[in-house]
Amino acid sequence: MAFIGGGKGGYDRAITVFSPDGKLFQVQYAQEAVKRGYTALGIKTDAGVVLAAEMKPSGKLVENGSVEKIFQIDDHIGASASGLIADARVLMDRARIEAQVNRIRYDEPIPVQTLARSIGDIKQIYTQHAGVRPFGARFLIGGVEESGSYLFETDPSGVVVAYKAHAIGGGANDAIEVLEDKYDEKMEMDDIILLALNALDKVIEAELKPTNVEMATIKAETKKFQKLANEDLLKHIKRLTS
């Protein structure tokens, strides 16, 4: 293999080359792309899972809902994303295929952990081949099964970690501070929704509105992914601010 010149400028030219201190700079750059993205979060309790994301206000000429930050993967699984949303969309299409293949092959819904690991595997592959770059997207993948509620994070390196509640993106630290302070495993669904809105309210600079928030729930009793309509979001926001 040809020698790549010293200094960061040399070692960041190829994804397959480690720097002398053991870093893959292209992976770190992908992590930085996520940090510059809008905040997304996930919370799970026995009552179910809530996924929420900060949305950039759309212009007058943009169709509402044309840009997604929260994706449905299967009936019982969804994901919130931060970073390069184009990268996220491609990976979510792969995730949906994985979920459908599992139903055809095993005649049962795919386990949340299996799906999260599959997406993590795809991301990891893109850190060790020349001619490609890492995916600049991080996900919080949540779902409900017969055995309970689950929430997993996958980052650009391919690492998969389970959480009770977590936030990603530019305002993640502030949102995590709220989650750590107010999270309770015994929360009911309405309380989880309010906690998610409370965390986003901490990071969104403008007034909290249905136009700058996207949210979905997966309730334990139904095990069905459902996005909240603007009128439902408005009711919960009024509860938060009252």
Rank of each mutant, 00 (worst) to 15 (best):
L41F: 03
I43Q: 09
K44C: 14
D46Q: 13
D46K: 13
A47H: 02
G48R: 07
A52M: 04
A52T: 00
E54K: 05
M55D: 01
P57R: 11
N64H: 03
E68Q: 11
I70T: 11
D75Y: 07
D75H: 12
H76K: 08
A79M: 07
S82K: 02
G83H: 01
I85Q: 08
I85F: 09
I85C: 06
A86N: 09
D87F: 02
D87V: 01
M92P: 05
D93A: 14
A95S: 11
R96Q: 12
R96I: 07
R96Y: 07
R96G: 11
I97H: 03
Q100T: 15
R103A: 03
I104K: 06
R105D: 08
R105V: 11
D107N: 15
P109M: 10
I110G: 01
T114F: 10
L115D: 09
L115Q: 09
A116G: 06
G120W: 09
G120Y: 09
K123C: 10
I125T: 15
Y126H: 09
T127H: 08
T127R: 09
H129M: 10
H129R: 07
A130W: 02
G136T: 06
F139K: 02
G143R: 03
E146W: 02
E146I: 05
Y150K: 14
E153W: 09
D155N: 13
D155M: 09
V160T: 13
V161F: 13
Y163L: 03
K164L: 15
A165Q: 12
G170N: 13
A172P: 01
N173C: 02
N173Q: 15
D174P: 00
A175C: 11
A175Q: 08
A175M: 09
I176N: 14
